[in-house]
């Protein structure tokens, strides 16, 4: 008897999922659909605008071409300013991020209170977006690059310090044990047991953050905190769409260059 000839009273049945599995899946789909339905129904959207959106966007792109290069000098200067802001802010943030990482890592923090303070700095600086920090610093220091640098730096602290603290917590304990056995105190444990192990991660994290900061600093100008965003806002407000297109292309080039440089540098340090 070959495989095909076998006779059976009932045909074979096969289903991908059991009944319980199917019910569970159905429930998840149902809840998701309900959430989406709720979101769509109550969201304040003027529907005719949605249908005309593709035309509007196409129209906007039409007005952007060809890009206008006449303000090239100004754009270049603003772009440099943007990179300066990102670099200085990254540099500045290290001075706070390093000690924060030290007290936010469970194995180096002096005591429970400092651990708590460290964790608080991580959460507070990381959860507030750059643009919101910029709003605050513009209110304090007035419009300009100072507000921009501080905004980028503050947002960076949480990000860098969190990754650095994790690196400190994941070190190999053995070299630390050796330094302790040799009679080294806390400072020397840090110097010989911890720093050599975490240094590559620290460098990589700093470079990564610099890359992110270049992207972030392109928007500072939209709230008056310096950089390319200022002239982008100006061009958009005065309907100079062709200039705006040039600025967007400039941003694209700088961001991609930043990413290339950053990934090349990170490969070298690890």
């Amino acid at each position: 008897m070959t495989l095909g000839e076998r006779e059976r009273a009932e045909p074979y049945r096969w289903q991908r999922f059991t009944l319980a599995e199917r019910l569970g899946r159905f429930l998840i789909y149902l809840v998701s659909a309900a959430i989406v339905f709720w979101a769509l129904r109550t969201l304040d959207v003027f529907w005719p605008w949605v249908w005309s959106a593709p035309t509007e966007i196409a129209d906007l792109f039409g007005r952007m071409t060809p890009p206008d290069l006449r303000r090239g000098d100004e754009i270049l200067r603003a772009m440099l300013e943007t990179i300066h802001i990102a670099t200085l802010a990254t540099f500045l943030s290290l001075f706070i991020a390093l000690p924060t990482a030290y007290i936010a890592a469970q194995n180096t923090t002096p005591n429970g209170v400092t651990l708590w303070i460290g964790r608080f700095i991580l959460v507070a600086t990381r959860s507030v977006n750059t643009i919101i920090w910029a709003l605050l610093f513009v209110a304090i220091f007035g419009p300009g690059v100072m507000a921009g640098i501080l905004a980028i730096a503050f947002r960076s602290i949480g990000f860098t310090a969190k990754l650095m603290a994790e690196a400190i917590e994941e070190i190999d304990r053995k070299p630390v044990e050796a330094v302790v056995a040799a009679g080294g105190d806390k400072g020397k444990i840090v110097l010989y047991g911890i720093v050599p192990q975490v240094l590559p991660t620290f460098l990589a994290v700093t470079i990564l953050r610099w890359d992110i900061n270049i992207r972030e600093s392109t928007v500072l100008g939209l709230v008056g905190a310096g950089g390319i965003g200022m002239i982008l806002q100006g061009a958009i407000d005065t309907f100079q769409w062709q200039t705006a297109a040039t600025i967007l292309i400039a941003i694209l080039i700088v961001v991609i260059l930043g990413e290339v440089v950053s990934s090349a540098l990170r490969k070298r340090v690890i």
Binding site: K174, A178, A181, A182, Y192, P196, Q197
Partner: peptide, 16 residues
């Protein structure tokens, strides 16, 4: 501790 030297099973060197 200075006067007690120690050799470890896992060497415990600072690799880098």
């Amino acid at each position: 501790r200075r006067s007690i030297g120690m050799i470890f099973q896992g060497f415990n060197l600072i690799d880098r």
